[in-house]
């Protein structure tokens, strides 16, 4: 039971924030793009930076997804070679 619950917490800690990080990255990219369009260039470039920001945001989301998948594997590999 103790082993199960520590494993559970480890899994929750490592993978429980995948969804939120993904969404946060997309929204930050989109928000940055909208800010550049509307406030920095005063709407003269209107849809373009929004789309570029959205694309970068989605890219960042996938990148953080891969990071999350890679990091715990590397950590457990360092810790115990058998497991």
């Amino acid at each position: 039971m103790a082993k199960l619950s520590t494993e559970m917490i480890d899994l929750l800690g490592n993978y429980g924030h995948i969804g939120f990080t993904f969404v946060a990255a997309i929204f930050i990219g989109l928000g940055g793009g909208i800010y550049l369009d509307e406030h920095f260039f005063d709407g003269s470039t209107s849809p373009w930076f929004t789309f570029i920001g959205l694309a970068f945001g989605i890219g960042a989301g996938f990148k953080s997804l891969f990071d999350i998948l890679r990091t715990p594997a590397a950590r457990t590999k360092d810790k115990d070679p058998e497991g």
Partner: peptide, 21 residues
Amino acid sequence: PLMLPIELISNVARLLSLSIR
């Protein structure tokens, strides 16, 4: 040029996701 914005965005996303979760 491709990776710098992506890395910066995913770094700032940490700030958002850690606090809002």
